[in-house]
């Protein structure tokens, strides 16, 4: 119950932040909207998994990831940035696993997100268009590829 309340509070906070952003108070000097591909995670190229993140101008986001499942899975939700930390919440009211410190390089093409967890995860993204075949084939996180339920 407590967790649920926290999630609702977080959702509310994000909506508030999103509301502020849309009023023209464009707090972030960093323009990280766009489509990004994870190229490095904790100092190494992610050869075993893959992730694309899309930050839209309207403060919505989409993730296309292939980690624990075969084929790409998609997630969506809303993001907010207060000039210091990037936060977000998924459409199913689950907040991101962490807030992130954001660094965009001079070219504007390399984005580094550092998680605010006890041991920080450093993810480096390069600005890249998400391939259409990935967008088209990704399974929404709430769906299952197996259409027939297996009562086993």
């Amino acid at each position: 119950m407590k967790r649920k309340i926290m999630q609702l509070v977080a959702a509310f906070a994000v909506l508030l932040l999103a509301g502020c952003g849309s009023s023209g108070d464009d707090a972030p000097a960093i323009r990280f909207t766009g489509e990004w591909h994870l190229t490095q995670w904790n100092g190494a190229a992610p050869t075993e998994f893959d992730a694309y993140v899309v930050f839209n101008e309207d403060r919505t986001f989409a993730i296309y990831q292939q980690i624990e499942q075969i084929g790409y899975q998609s997630f969506s939700g809303r993001w907010a940035y207060d000039g210091k930390l990037l936060t977000g919440i998924y459409d199913d009211a689950i907040p991101w696993g962490s807030d992130y410190e954001v660094v965009l390089d001079e070219t504007g093409d390399v984005l580094t997100l550092t998680s605010q967890t006890s041991i920080g995860e450093v993810s480096v993204y390069r600005r890249t268009t998400v391939p259409e075949e990935i967008k088209g084939s990704a399974i929404p996180s709430t769906a299952s590829r197996t259409e027939q339920p297996r009562l086993l």
Binding site: Q65, Y90, D92, I94, S115
Partner: peptide
């Protein structure tokens, strides 16, 4: 260390 309930 980043963990979400939905696996995102």
């Amino acid at each position: 260390s980043v963990q979400t309930e939905n696996g995102g």
